[in-house]
C-alpha cells in the first residue's frame, strides 16, 4: 500500500469523524478563518486568552473539508490549550505532521498545515503584527 491509506490511520479517521473542540466560542479573544481555495477546505479557529493575554485558555475550531485538514485542526486544538502565543508561533509544519503521526504526501501538506497557519495568523492579527482577511495555504 502506498501513501494514501497510510495517511488514513485510525487517529486521523477518529479525529475526522469525532472532531475535538468543534464549534464556535462565545466572546473569543480572537477568531480567524482560512481556506485552501483549490480544495475548498475551510477552517475557523476561535481562541480565548487568559488574563495574561498570552496563555491560550480555550480553543475551538469549525470548518469543512478533507479528512487531513479537519483532523489536523482537531489534533491542533488539543495541543493549543495551555500553550502560550510564543509557543504557538514556534510551531512549524514538521510539528503538525509529527502530531498527525503519518507521512503526508507532498500534494496534501497544505491541507495538514492549514489549521496551524490559521491559528498563527489569527494571533498575529490580534497582536497587531499584520492585517489580513483570510489565511490561504498553497
Amino acid at each position: 500500500m502506498g501513501l494514501g491509506s497510510d495517511m488514513y490511520r485510525q487517529q486521523i479517521l477518529d479525529h475526522y469523524k469525532n472532531p475535538r473542540n468543534y464549534g464556535e466560542l462565545e466572546d473569543p479573544t480572537f477568531s480567524h478563518t482560512g481556506e485552501n481555495p483549490t480544495c475548498g477546505d475551510t477552517i475557523r479557529i476561535d481562541i480565548v486568552l487568559a488574563d495574561d493575554e498570552e496563555t491560550i485558555e480555550r480553543v475551538a475550531f469549525s470548518g469543512d473539508g478533507c479528512a487531513i485538514s479537519q483532523a489536523s485542526a482537531s489534533l491542533l486544538t488539543e495541543q493549543l490549550r495551555g500553550m502560550t502565543l510564543t509557543e504557538l508561533h514556534e510551531l512549524d509544519r514538521d510539528d503538525v505532521i509529527d502530531m498527525l503521526g503519518v507521512e503526508i504526501s507532498p500534494m496534501r501538506v497544505k491541507c495538514a498545515v492549514l489549521a496551524e497557519k490559521v491559528a498563527q495568523d489569527g494571533a498575529k492579527i490580534h497582536t497587531g503584527e499584520f492585517e489580513i482577511d483570510t489565511t490561504q495555504t498553497e
Binding site: Y8, G65, I68
Partner: peptide, 8 residues
C-alpha cells in the same frame, strides 16, 4: 472528500 478519495 474528493481529495481523500483520490488518495485512497
Amino acid at each position: 472528500h474528493a481529495h481523500d478519495l483520490s488518495s485512497i
